[in-house]
Design a protein around this nucleic acid. Sequence first.
DNA 1: CGATTAATTGAAGGAGATCAATCCGGGTGG
DNA 2: CCACCCGGATTGATCTCCTTCAATTAATCG
Lengths: 252, 252
Amino acid sequence: MAAEAARPDCADDPAGCLLLKLRARDEVSPREEEVLRDAVAEIETFRAGKTIIRAGVQLNRSALLVAGLVARQKDLADGQRQIMEFHVPGDFTDLHGFPLKSLDHDLAALTPATIGFVPHAALRRITEEEPHLTRLLWLSTLIDAAIQRERILSVGRRAALVRIAHLLCELRLRFELIGLADAGGYQLPLTQIDLADAAGLTPVHVNRMLRVLRERGLATFRGGRVTIHDWARLQEAAEFDPAYLHFQHQPR
Amino acid sequence: MAAEAARPDCADDPAGCLLLKLRARDEVSPREEEVLRDAVAEIETFRAGKTIIRAGVQLNRSALLVAGLVARQKDLADGQRQIMEFHVPGDFTDLHGFPLKSLDHDLAALTPATIGFVPHAALRRITEEEPHLTRLLWLSTLIDAAIQRERILSVGRRAALVRIAHLLCELRLRFELIGLADAGGYQLPLTQIDLADAAGLTPVHVNRMLRVLRERGLATFRGGRVTIHDWARLQEAAEFDPAYLHFQHQPR
DNA sequence: CGATTAATTGAAGGAGATCAATCCGGGTGG
DNA sequence: CCACCCGGATTGATCTCCTTCAATTAATCG
């Protein structure tokens, strides 16, 4: 029914991954689940490289990533790109656009992507009738913000090798939560250019750092897949502490 | 009544600056204003350098900055510090802590600071009874997120001089909104070390970049004050576009 | 008015950028 | 089915922006 986009996912079920993410943080009642599922009005697919939402455009619906990989990114006049966050299936990627009414950055498909759109009218109704669900949606935007803060720290103060390792650790946990990581690693169909633009480095230097990670037996990024060889030492090299992902399950 | 902290501000009136900020983005009804004012339960003052909220601590109230300057910051094991955002009076600095229940970073007073605390119970009541005000509070957390995204871009891709200039531009507009900037500039009682930790640079290099800005006749940072000599050219040097501050007044 | 912290300036070093060339894999058209 | 093409991956050589180290000056404060 829903157009297939990328790879085996919690696709088909537009709100499935989102519910996994929310339920990792708090209870979601069957009624709330139903409200959420009903809120997804249309499903669209985007080719890799397409811009899903452009900065500054007035919005009346928000995009929920169902399958594929998407990035929040800004471009500078000289053509440089900075990726603020990678999004994995289940991320309510521009829920930010609901209170903000327009985004300050682009939302771009890095792989073929399936997007579910939720009209702002439906979100507004949720804020009026479902206070707990509202808090959970609010929460999900703030977890994005937390991930972005960790990016500031990485880009601002961590050495190149640490940045890359940290990114690989973060993505592993985020994929794991939605059942898209196995023991050995996870699919990550990105280019080294994408990684560079997220890490604030050049592709050349990312390549060298990936080589170091490989040679040290920590992790391999190749053919759109991250293979983790030594999770403990990778986390150590990344100075990785997952606290910022706010995985605690508690009443919100 | 309220203990005075730093300098002439919209102090005295704990929710005053916050209302200025919200009303720049949407209408706030008298009733909503009252609810907001009533929500501020206690007022405390902090010395410069004190940590107001520590990362990871379970929270049951949120901090609203009434007067002074505050930073969201993270520290690395080797002692490096990264400031994710400077906060000006009226910023509901850890409203994030309401859905999140704990912060992933520290909140530290950079100057003597006056903080109003809002119990989470009061915020919860707002989410249950005041959907529009809820959306405005949600919005305010997302404007913080937008400011932090712009920081990612600065730290990730902009040259040192541009970063510093950009920071000075941003703070000018944010101070202006709450009436704390005059034609010539604004008070900014920070050290060059603070600026360095926000810009992801060393204090030495910040010093050199400030000198360049001064010598080019763009702006001077000295004695805790930013004097702007040529606003147009400063913005140009900063590649500054204020869109990310979401100043549009519209229904949310 | 010492003592401590921040600001300033110079000199040298290094992490990452830039420039450039080659390799590789997959798509594509003849 | 293969030659070609093209974007990404890889590697080397060089350069540069910012860091690091160090020393001096200025400002702030008990």
